[in-house]
Design a protein around this nucleic acid. Structure first.
Lengths: 98, 98
DNA sequence: GCTCGATCAACTCCGCCTTCGTCATCGTCC
DNA sequence: GGACGATGACGAAGGCGGAGTTGATCGAGC
């Protein structure tokens, strides 16, 4: 799903129909993600109920390999973002696993 | 950052001030995440520009260990969600790494 | 139209993941 | 605004799964 489709879907949802323009919807969603990014960078974490949690994580440097030439290369330490789906979401992902 | 704070921040943003109530904002954001979850489950993927991509991933079953008792336990295969920050976001996370 | 993300190769070692109780914090309903 | 119920965070230790590495090309998204 793309940003455009996301906007479409929400705009089409009857509960918001007419209340918010697609343009404003786009701006809103942009802001949502901008805020989330800010939170992750500043606080190191962002959680949304029944969805999941983003966590800022430090990755140690290591020795990797160029998959093309297979020569070894140094990989610098870096910061990444990990996502952990919350319980409900996880269960919805694994239908049979109770 | 929590859902309530997220709503606060966006509601306080001057560009939306007065245009959308906090209550509707809450419903909107709920819908956003619900849609994202739906996309991940149905299509296996969701991307948002300059933010990142969620990918549905299968995890193989394996033998784990109860960290308390250290006894071995079987872990069933399952589906998880991985998140990959896009380039811009990654760079913003690693200020000095050019 | 133009940027930017997806893709794919094979190999390695990092860090995720497990359980479970307690605590606190968040969300929600009144 | 306050109280209650529910739910996520946290940590222990060890093993092996899989993410991540380069780079060019293609297609799609904006």
């Amino acid at each position: 799903m793309t940003k455009a489709e996301l906007i479409e879907h929400i705009h089409a949802a009857k509960e918001f129909k007419g209340a918010v323009s697609k343009k404003m919807l786009g701006a809103l969603i942009d802001t949502v993600f901008a805020e989330i990014e800010r939170a992750i960078r500043k606080e190191g974490k962002f959680s949304f109920p029944n969805f999941g949690t983003f966590v800022r994580r430090k990755r140690a440097g290591r020795v990797g390999r160029n998959p093309k030439t297979q020569e070894k290369i140094k990989i610098a330490p870096r910061v990444t973002v990990a996502f952990k789906a919350h319980q409900g979401f996880r269960e919805r992902l694994n239908p049979r696993a109770r």
